[in-house]
C-alpha cells in the first residue's frame, strides 16, 4: 500500500463525508448549500458541457500561464541583472499588482469586445506574472559573487555565466513562484469567464447555474475548478522534480 496516494484519497473521502453531514445535520435545502450527493446528478446532466467548458478553461489558463512565464522571466531577468532597471520597474510592478484584477476585467472586456479567448488569456496572464517576475529577479540579484567569479575568472561572458550558473540556480525560486502563478491564473480565467456574456468555459457554466438557480450545478462547477487546479498544480510539481529536483534534499 502506498500511503502517498492513499492518504490524500482518504482525506478527500473524509472531507466529503463531513460536508454531507454538515448539510444533513442542518437540514439545509440545496439552494443554501448543495451536498456532495447532489453533485453526481449535476455532473451527469451537464457532462458534455463540463468536458467542453472544462477544456476551454484549461487551455485558456495554460495559455495565460505560458505568457506569464515568458513575460515574467523576461522582466525578472531585466530586473535581476540590472540595478537601475530594478529600481525603475519595481514600483510600477507593485502598483500594477495592487490593482484588484476584478476591476481590470470590465476594462479588458470593453477594450476587445467579443474576443473571449484573448480576453480570458489576458486576464489569466495579468494576474499571474507578478510572482514569477519578482522571484526570478530576486534569484538572479542575490547570486553570491563567488559563483560569478568561478567563471568570470576564466574570462566567461555575462551570457555564459547567466546560462551556466545564474539561470539553473534560480530554477527552484522560479518553480516556487510558478505554483503560486498556477492558482492565480485560474482565478483570472474564471473572473473573465463569469463576467463575459455569451462566453464559454467553466466560469460561464457557473454563471448559467446562477441565472437558472441550479445550485447543485454551481457547486459542481466549483468542484470541477478545484480538480483542474489540483491537476495543473501537480503538472508543475512534476516539471519541478524534473528540472529542479536537485534542490530537494533527501532527509538524512
Amino acid at each position: 500500500m502506498n500511503w502517498r496516494i492513499f492518504a490524500p484519497l482518504i482525506a478527500l473521502v473524509v472531507f466529503c463525508l463531513l460536508w454531507e453531514a454538515l448539510v444533513w445535520v442542518n437540514d439545509w435545502p440545496n439552494y443554501k448549500m448543495a451536498s456532495p450527493s447532489d453533485l453526481g446528478p449535476a455532473f451527469w446532466k451537464f457532462r458534455w458541457l463540463f468536458l467542453e467548458y472544462g477544456w476551454d478553461t484549461l487551455w485558456r489558463t495554460v495559455a495565460g500561464l505560458l505568457l506569464s512565464v515568458f513575460v515574467g522571466l523576461l522582466l525578472g531577468m531585466i530586473m535581476g541583472l540590472n540595478r537601475t532597471m530594478r529600481d525603475a520597474l519595481y514600483p510600477l510592478l507593485v502598483g500594477f499588482n495592487a490593482i484588484p484584477k476584478a476591476t481590470v476585467v470590465p476594462i479588458i472586456a470593453l477594450l476587445f469586445v467579443g474576443a473571449h479567448d484573448m480576453n480570458t488569456i489576458l486576464i489569466a496572464f495579468l494576474i499571474s506574472f507578478f510572482p514569477i517576475a519578482v522571484s526570478v529577479s530576486i534569484g538572479l540579484s542575490t547570486l553570491e559573487p563567488e559563483y560569478r567569479d568561478i567563471l568570470a575568472s576564466l574570462g566567461a561572458s555575462r551570457f555564459t555565466i547567466f546560462w551556466k550558473i545564474a539561470l539553473p540556480k534560480t530554477l527552484p525560486e522560479f518553480f516556487g513562484s510558478l505554483k503560486v502563478a498556477v492558482t492565480l491564473a485560474f482565478i483570472g480565467t474564471n473572473l473573465m469567464e463569469i463576467v463575459e456574456p455569451h462566453g464559454r468555459g467553466l466560469g460561464h457554466l457557473f454563471d448559467s447555474g446562477k441565472i437558472s438557480a441550479d445550485y447543485p450545478l454551481m457547486f459542481a462547477v466549483l468542484i470541477a475548478l478545484a480538480a483542474l487546479g489540483i491537476l495543473l498544480y501537480y503538472v508543475v510539481v512534476v516539471l519541478e522534480r524534473t528540472f529542479a529536483g536537485w534542490a530537494e534534499r533527501s532527509p538524512t
Binding site: E144, E146, Y147, D149, I150, L151, A152, S153, L154, G155, A156, K164, I165, P168, K169, L171, A244, W246, A247
Partner: peptide
C-alpha cells in the same frame, strides 16, 4: 582582464548543486 591560466578557490566552495561532483570539476 581575466585569463584562463588562473584557477580560483574560495572559502565558500560554491559547487553547483544541480551538477554531479564530476560535472562540477569539468566546468572550467
Amino acid at each position: 582582464g581575466p585569463k584562463s591560466s588562473v584557477g580560483m578557490a574560495f572559502q565558500n566552495p560554491v559547487l553547483l548543486e544541480w551538477r554531479s561532483v564530476l560535472r562540477n570539476v569539468t566546468l572550467p
